[in-house]
Simulated scan of single mutants.
Amino acid sequence: MTVDRIADQALALLDEVGLEGLSTRKLAAALGMQGPSLYHHFQNKAELLGHMTARILYRALAPLDRNVAWDVWLRTLSHATRAMTLEYRDGAMLYASSNPSDEIRRKLLPDMAEPLLRAGFTQLAADQSISFLGSFVVGWAVNEQNETVRRLMVSMMEMDETFAAGVETLVQGIAIRNGKSLSTPAG
């Protein structure tokens, strides 16, 4: 039993029962093991949730080309993260409420920052840029997964177009803040 297999099963269970219904007892039963056995792999539920979030991020990042201009990278990363987060019931709330795992801190965040560093961003500016966009993406997805809020938003705007406009606004702001040029026209 690997931590990835456990996290994948937890994501499948999340789709069935939602974040509020997810428990280590239910997860252990779905895996055919005793609840305490999970703690051999995870110290607590918070660590499990962080690993589940890492699995979502890996799936969002896996198909992306990192050898693109910094602004293309940020747009692509934002759209991919939103799409992958929305694939899971309560995926956005999971992302918003979990503690970043060691895997996220050691591997995923540096992977996300790498195209910006290559473009001459400082480490701080790259980290801030990823945080700005990540906060927007997760907040947007939380609203999308809240049916009442989503209905209101849909009545006021076209969701995909407005999300893209929000990402573009942030990317342009990041360019101005860091004295960088955009490689592609706004849009």
Rank of each mutant, 00 (worst) to 15 (best):
M1F: 15
T2G: 03
R5K: 13
Q9V: 06
L11S: 10
L13V: 04
L13C: 06
L14R: 02
D15G: 11
D15S: 12
G18N: 10
K26E: 05
K26G: 00
L27W: 11
A28Q: 04
M33W: 08
S37V: 01
Y39S: 12
Y39V: 08
F42H: 02
Q43D: 02
T53V: 03
A54F: 06
A62Q: 07
P63K: 09
D65T: 02
R66S: 15
W73K: 02
R75D: 07
T76F: 14
T76H: 12
S78K: 05
H79L: 13
T81I: 12
R82Q: 13
A83E: 03
A83P: 00
A83C: 00
L86M: 09
E87F: 06
E87W: 07
R89H: 07
D90T: 04
D90F: 04
G91W: 01
A92T: 00
A92N: 01
M93C: 12
S97E: 06
S98W: 06
S101L: 03
D102I: 14
D102K: 09
E103V: 13
R105Y: 10
R106K: 04
M112Y: 08
P115D: 10
L117Y: 00
R118K: 14
T122V: 02
Q123E: 15
Q123A: 09
I130R: 03
L133N: 00
F136Q: 07
V137H: 00
V137K: 01
V137Q: 03
V137P: 00
V138I: 12
W140I: 03
A141E: 08
E144A: 12
Q145N: 11
N146C: 14
V149Q: 03
L152M: 08
M153G: 05
S155E: 06
M156G: 15
D160R: 04
E168H: 09
V171F: 05
I174H: 08
R177S: 14
K180C: 10
L182T: 12
A186R: 11
G187C: 04
